[in-house]
Design a protein around this nucleic acid. Structure first.
Lengths: 342, 342
DNA sequence: TTGAAAGCGCTAACAT
DNA sequence: ATGTTAGCGCTTTCAA
């Protein structure tokens, strides 16, 4: 009895099987040059002792973990939770695990923490940038494979997969206009949001109005956060202030759901009195009553692209010429908007 | 120019600042015995070189990472996504990060993978057990702090925080009976589910019927998976088969949402024709139209307990006498059920 | 086919 | 207040 700790190391296995640690390592990693009988002995010892590899040690030495990090603003937002699920499926097919962590969205310090520190635990990182400006982006010096998601094109050395925020928002707004809405609330929007998701979707809202030759009313632009209650509160406040409207473009489906609840409380009918379009086409959307018209940002295409780009970096090392990909968005018409009349 | 790699190590910082690596380590970890001027030099060097600690190395040496793992069956299920958010908040207050990974629920091999291997990357693990039987549970030999979530009491050496699945389900069903439903669908249930969540909630359903002296009808027990469409499909199939019912107890809110959509398609009114109660009280529930009556499994109490138990293990080492905690559940009455008539 | 030696980057324990 | 030594558990390299 020399060891008191119950942690079993490779050396323990080696001793028990009467071989060197190298041979154990070779067996575990499926390397070829190991005798059949030796392999058996080693496997038996592993099973008997309940040995588990220490990933930290492997990572330290070999520089890989088989783990890909996914950093998102909030874990509970359906869009990101569903994205995580889709990515997990795809990476699993490549023998890689996804682990998810949150950045906290706004606080840029959070984000740095992920990129500058945690990255070292992963073979690669998928980073959903929310409120990161180009200056910070270029500061990130790292050799590790990184794929960025979201927002507008930014000068950076990272592969970057984007949804088409502007065009998606334009389609949503255009649809509301085409089906008869004239006073459309921009819910959650921030016209000064610049290259953030908020700013881009607000831009699409303006574009659609310009295309249709219809003025926008600043009173109808309501900023909010992105939880259910934020959408609810925003619409409530609009109603309390007696500001009239006949359509809502919600910047996310979650906010749209909150908005619809507020409309119901006010006895306003959807879509008869007020039409609503969301953005994200989360799984919830098609099961709501009425089901939610939304913008599908190209879920599967995005997940495919993200996975493919990261896998490529994992193989070939960091990219020299970062790829910048914009996945097309499309409207999914459901019951919170009226059919076209024309 | 000796190094070609761009990875900056502590040794690089030490050289640049003209100190030993130990001093750099002391500065980084905020240990006291460092001169003010030396600290400045070191911090300057860190900033200049863009140094980041290598967590794998720290973990290997110090045995801690500042990271707590959370393993859940599916990343996209709102209950787990929202749980992850709550836990992240709490652990953040203790200077710890949460990272989330999925086990895949059913495949026990997935689960083992987490427990036996990934665990080594974390200071502790929170494991949501879904389909794990006691035998496997006792096999897990590990010194690392582990807190289990969910399901029924199981003999194990781990701290275990449970929601009261049986009583929650009993309350849900009792409420349906008390408000006039007599033929209540058990949606997603599996009476043979044993100690799984499914089996426990089915048990509560039976209990409530027994309490009320009302027979259950096996035709009304419909198994399903836990996605929106599973709830939808299950109700559709019941309607197609002309099996009459006037209430639905859905094993999760997600399934309930799918069910309500199917009822709407069949022109059945909720709650007038069919009452619906879900389980989980996810954020979505109160914003739906009609808002969803559900069982709140004690979200905050659970998160508090989980955090507290893990933190304690982190401090004191693995528990000798594992704690087993059952958090009470309570009904949240909303619009998918009728008010009490008595 | 197998093993010995070296060292990945860091920190605990012990000098100085 | 700072430095030296040793070694965490693994894998790479090279030798047997």
């Amino acid at each position: 009895m020399k060891k008191t700790s119950t942690v079993v190391t490779m050396a323990d296995v080696a001793r028990s099987a009467g071989v060197s640690t190298m041979t154990v390592s070779n067996v575990i990693n499926g390397r070829p040059r190991v005798g059949a009988e030796t392999r058996e002995r080693v496997l038996a010892a592993i099973a008997e002792l309940g040995y588990q590899v220490n990933l930290a040690a492997r990572h330290l030495r070999a520089g890989r973990t088989g783990v890909v990090g996914l950093a998102v603003p909030e874990l509970e937002r359906p869009y990101f939770a569903q994205l995580a699920g889709r990515l997990a499926d795809r990476f699993e097919a490549h023998g890689l695990r996804i682990v998810v962590e949150r950045t906290g969205a706004s606080r840029q310090g959070e984000l740095d923490a992920v990129v500058f520190s945690r990255l070292r635990m992963y073979d690669g990182l998928i980073l959903s940038v929310v409120d990161l400006d180009p200056a910070e982006l270029t500061q990130m010096r790292t050799d590790a494979p990184v794929v960025m998601i979201g927002e507008r094109a930014l000068p950076s050395k990272f592969d970057h997969v984007m949804m088409d925020n502007i065009d998606g928002a334009r389609q949503a707004t255009a649809h509301l206009l085409a089906t008869g809405s004239r006073r459309i609330v921009l819910l959650g929007g921030d016209p000064d949001g610049g290259a953030s998701m908020t700013g881009l979707r607000a831009e699409g809202y303006s574009l659609a109005h310009a295309d249709a030759g219809i003025e926008t009313d600043p009173d109808l632009v309501v900023r909010s956060s992105f939880r259910f209650e934020d959408g609810y509160d925003a619409i409530r406040s609009l109603l309390d202030r007696k500001i009239g409207f006949d359509g809502v473009f919600a910047l996310t489906d979650v906010v749209a759901i909150g908005a619809i609840r507020a409309l119901a409380d006010a006895k306003l009918r959807v879509p008869d009195d007020v039409q609503v379009v969301g953005f994200d086409d989360v799984d919830e959307a098609r099961f709501l009553v009425p089901s939610l018209t939304s913008i599908n940002p190209g879920h599967d295409e995005m997940a495919d692209a993200i996975c493919e780009l990261l896998i490529r970096q994992l193989k070939d090392g960091p990219t020299d010429e970062p790829e910048e990909l914009v996945v097309p968005a499309h409207l999914v018409e459901r019951q919170t908007t009226r059919p076209h009349t024309n």
